[in-house]
Amino acid sequence: MADGNGLSDNKNGYLLSSQDTTPAAGERSVHGFTATGPDGKSVTDFAVDQTERMYFYAIRSDLTGFQRIHPTMAADGTGIAVLAPLAPGSWRMFTSFTPDSGAGVDTGGLS
C-alpha cells in the first residue's frame, strides 16, 4: 500500500471506494463514490474547507489534464462528481475532505 504519494485509496483509516473505475473517453460522465471512516461507516458530515465540504479531482497521469469538481453529496455519504469529457489516457480520481469530527484527508488512486 502506497503512503503519501497519492496512489492509495485510504489514509488515516478513511477509505475511498467507487464502482465507476473506467469513465468513457470523450464523453461527459458521472463518477459515484463513497468515503468510509475508521469505524467502517460512510462519512456523512464534512467540515467546510475553504468554500466547500469536499473536492474531487480527476488528474491525467501525464499531467496534461485536470478537473476540480465540487461533488454532490447525498445524506447517506454517497458522492457524485460530474466529469467533463476526458481525453483518452490514464486518469486518477482523488478526493480531499475534512470529516466534521477529524483530521483532513486526501485520498486517491482510483484510475
Rank of each mutant, 00 (worst) to 15 (best):
T95S: 07
D106G: 11
D100G: 14
P88D: 08
G40M: 03
S96Y: 10
V82T: 15
D76Q: 05
D9E: 12
G108M: 09
D39T: 06
T51S: 14
G65T: 14
P88K: 10
D62Q: 09
D106S: 14
N5C: 10
M54P: 01
N10L: 00
S17R: 13
G32P: 00
A47H: 04
N5G: 12
A58I: 04
T36Y: 01
M93K: 04
S61A: 15
L83C: 04
D20Y: 03
V48H: 01
T36H: 02
M73G: 00
L63I: 04
G26H: 10
K41R: 13
A84Q: 15
V43N: 02
I80T: 15
F94H: 11
R28K: 15
P23R: 06
L83Y: 03
T78Q: 12
T64W: 01
G32I: 01
S8Y: 03
V82D: 06
D39R: 07
T22H: 12
I80G: 00
G26E: 05
F66M: 09
S17T: 15
G108T: 12
Q19D: 14
E52L: 04
Y55A: 12
Q50D: 15
P88V: 06
P71G: 08
T95A: 05
G13A: 09
G89Q: 09
R92V: 06
Y57V: 10
F66W: 10
T64D: 11
I80M: 06
F97Q: 08
D76S: 08
D20I: 05
G104F: 09
T98A: 12
M54N: 02
N10D: 09
G89T: 08
M93D: 01
W91N: 00
A25D: 14
Q50F: 14
G79P: 03
N12Q: 13
L63Q: 11
P23A: 08
R92W: 04
G89P: 03
D49H: 07
G6I: 00
S42E: 10
T34A: 02
A87L: 07
W91V: 03
M54S: 05
F33Q: 04
I80P: 00
H31M: 12
G65M: 07
M54C: 09
T95H: 06
M93N: 06
N12E: 12
A103V: 12
S90L: 14
R68W: 04
D100Y: 00
F97M: 15
Y57K: 12
I69K: 00
F46G: 00
P88N: 06
A84W: 02
D9A: 11
M54W: 02
T72E: 13
T78V: 12
R92S: 08
G40S: 04
S111P: 13
M1W: 08
R92M: 07
G40L: 06
T95K: 01
P85T: 04
P99N: 08
G37Y: 00
G37L: 03
Q50S: 14
V48Q: 10
K41Q: 15
T21M: 09
G4A: 13
G65E: 10
K41Y: 02
M1F: 11
